[in-house]
């Protein structure tokens, strides 16, 4: 009696070859990106109207108004990515904002103080209504981390009133850390 069945062996070989061939069929060489790097880092600059960076406005901001600006409280904070090489060369902090005339009439000159990564920057007083820029150099020591918290405070603000129940500081436009 035959031990090996030729037909069985032939079929088995055929089936194995078919499965290997199917599985090993060359595919189009499409490189599949296994990671998505589109949101890898925070931004070093934040605009009031940019929804992509809104999460970096961590404290003291009200909702966006007219798709372009936001009111702040008396104290507010932003987290910014530190620019490349700023840990050795330092950077410049630039805050753009506005003081409405109605507010200026009630409060007079407003002094703005800021700190980056806990290191205080020189304060500056703004003695006129309108748009302003607070721009100060930031020492390298304050920028040793990859991200830093920028804390801003005003010496005075509009308290909650009958017309607007919010505490109002200034109208925030943008903030940025720029390499020097």
């Amino acid at each position: 009696m035959r031990i090996f069945d030729f037909r069985l062996t032939a079929f088995l070989t055929l089936a194995c070859a078919a499965s290997w061939t199917t599985a090993c069929k060359p595919r189009k060489s499409v490189r599949v990106e296994l990671t998505d790097e589109s949101a890898a880092s925070l931004s070093a600059s934040v605009h009031a109207a940019d929804p992509q960076t809104a999460a970096q406005l961590v404290r003291g901001f009200y909702d966006i108004e007219q798709n372009s600006w936001r009111w702040t409280r008396r104290e507010f904070a932003v987290v910014l990515q530190t620019p490349a090489s700023s840990a050795s060369k330092g950077a410049t902090l630039t805050l753009k904002f506005a003081i409405p005339e109605a507010e200026f009439e009630k409060l007079g000159p407003i002094t703005l103080s800021a700190s980056v990564g806990g290191k205080p920057l020189p304060p500056e007083t703004f003695a006129a209504p309108g748009t302003h820029t607070y721009s100060k150099p930031v020492p390298p020591a304050a920028l040793s981390a990859a991200v830093v918290e920028v804390d801003v405070s005003l010496d005075k603000c509009l308290p909650p009133g009958a017309v607007d129940g919010r505490e109002l500081g200034l109208i925030f436009s943008s903030i940025a850390l720029e390499s020097r």
């Binding site: 296994l34 998505d36 790097e37 589109s38 890898a40 925070l42 987290v79 990515q81």
Partner: peptide, 10 residues
């Protein structure tokens, strides 16, 4: 995998 280093750093 999505790189979320920025938000996580915050």
């Amino acid at each position: 995998l999505r790189n979320v280093t920025g938000p996580t750093s915050m």
